[in-house]
Design a protein around this nucleic acid. Sequence first.
DNA 1: CAGGATCCCAGATGATACTG
DNA 2: CAGTATCATCTGGGATCCTG
Lengths: 136, 136
Amino acid sequence: MGTSLKPAHIDLPATQMPDPNHADCRGVASILSRVGDKWTVFVIMMLSDGPKRFNELKRMINGISQRMLTLTLRGLERDGLVTRTIFPTIPPRVDYELTDLGRGLQQPVVALGQWAVEHQQQIAAARARFDERNGG
Amino acid sequence: MGTSLKPAHIDLPATQMPDPNHADCRGVASILSRVGDKWTVFVIMMLSDGPKRFNELKRMINGISQRMLTLTLRGLERDGLVTRTIFPTIPPRVDYELTDLGRGLQQPVVALGQWAVEHQQQIAAARARFDERNGG
DNA sequence: CAGGATCCCAGATGATACTG
DNA sequence: CAGTATCATCTGGGATCCTG
């Protein structure tokens, strides 16, 4: 298959949480997992400035396969972060757009993104140092 | 081997960015990818309140395998987010601790985490609806 | 105790071909 | 155009055994 709409993501044995202090970890991680997904991030960003069509997204996100774009969009739709609007024309046309929920998610993602941008150098440097210390 | 210290993460063909407006996507996504990693998030959270030993972490993070804990910690060390201190005693003892950089990362992660917590219900509901609309 | 080395399988992803 | 279906591959990750 590999066509499941329910990616593995996070599903710890709900039996016991890692730490009582962080009882919400599971839910959080599940969402962070989606956010951390390579393609998901890009799709959300591409949808920042209004609705986009399937092939439009495919062209914007250089390197994504048709299959992965479909799966990514389905996942986002499932989580209520993106809406899918079908225009029954010929040829068919489908628009994808962020929901309010999706737009809300953008904020924290962008915040994290800014941190990432600001510390890119440091991390790259750390990696370089580490890789050199060991056998690159 | 799957033992590589350099996980796939994001590596778009640096040739062209998806969108000029988001020229930093690659670096950002690379870091988001690390943050989105299931175990990485947990390890960072577990290290919030001071240094921890290997097996200590292993016990706290219910369900993580030895292999994955090792790999996760190595990745964090490589990125300069965690330090690894070896005490040459017998039996050996190794402490892991967040660096300043690592602690800085906590902020945005927590922010995102809060969003996640606050919208857990909505997402769960959306999923349920979606799954029902289709063949569960 | 900390972690390296192996074996191995399930699931993620790409490539390709077909369709309403 | 916007997918779906199928096949092939490649990798993440668990289980297990070994060692300083």
